[in-house]
Design a protein around this nucleic acid. Sequence first.
DNA 1: GTCTATACGATGATAGAC
DNA 2: GTCTATCATCGTATAGAC
Lengths: 197, 197
Amino acid sequence: MGESLFAARGYAGVGMREIAASVGLSKSSLFHHFPTKLVFYGEVLDRALERLERALCEETEHPGAPAEQLDHWIASIVGTLAESAPVARLLLRSMVDEDPFPPIEFEPEGRESMPFERRLEAVIDRFRRLLEHGIEEGVFRPVSVGDAIQTTIGAIVFHFASGDLGEALIGEPIFSGSAVERRRQEVSNFIRRGLLA
Amino acid sequence: MGESLFAARGYAGVGMREIAASVGLSKSSLFHHFPTKLVFYGEVLDRALERLERALCEETEHPGAPAEQLDHWIASIVGTLAESAPVARLLLRSMVDEDPFPPIEFEPEGRESMPFERRLEAVIDRFRRLLEHGIEEGVFRPVSVGDAIQTTIGAIVFHFASGDLGEALIGEPIFSGSAVERRRQEVSNFIRRGLLA
DNA sequence: GTCTATACGATGATAGAC
DNA sequence: GTCTATCATCGTATAGAC
């Protein structure tokens, strides 16, 4: 709900009217469920990130060598981003935009609503530990971990957020089965080569 | 003019009033110089991309082995993006946003106003030729060229557009001298390893 | 929960004085 | 070229009927 709209035009680019209309509701009805546009946006972001987090948990629970875990991790993210087109754009926006996150609320009830930024940090932290572990074991090069994470995020997320430009570049729809599978392989190769000692 | 504002909040997130005020003008005066907000935005994008294009031309004119050209290319882009903070965000937005480009105008006078998208295509096409040339020579792996370009763009541009998140990840300001130089090296290593046969 | 009606500031854009 | 109105429209948000 609202995902594809926010993904396409950003937070400020979509009005509550349009979002409501897109699901066959009245604007006022939307405000009955969400007190504020910012809160609503935060919930949309959170739901998208939650899917990614869940996929990551399933895939990375069973431990293994860092290089294999890395591959599982990449496959899991690529798979999740490929599942629904708006997610990558939404995620990229949330990382590039200046601020528009709802402030930490007072947890009106015992909601499990982890704020969006904390959720993102958690995902990234798990990846950081994977890299550090691999470097300690000597299987990964002693790269700058922060930079490696940035490179990985950029390489994976940007592609699925690049819309027409990306489609023009690779010569077929980004979300077609063949393009997704090739992307998984290419990214996996690239990052493994970049990291392995 | 308007670069940092658009970079921070996107096309729809900034009003002409605010832009005008930020340069000590009245909104109406802005509309005297630019017929439409979309045209103005296009001009802002174009100027940013023009700087990147110019830097790229200087750096890549003198030919050499593909691997060295690649390094020059990366250094040139990293240097340009590091020069002014808004550029990377602006560029990333232009690639992620849905549409907001001014339509091809009738070239009211003999202006050199290459439309933004064409300029971007030109830059990317030069990179594509570099990769294809390297693959033909056997110095690069036979990667999917489109995917390699996507990976490179994502790795380079996203980092300098990631603001607070990136700063938290690498533990120092993104645009500090040391962070920029390290980034250049890390990206260079990563991509060279990913591409070299 | 959903709606209509309304409030009111901000938006992009225009007209016209200087 | 710059300004001060002014315009219609859209923005978020609220009140209250059903």
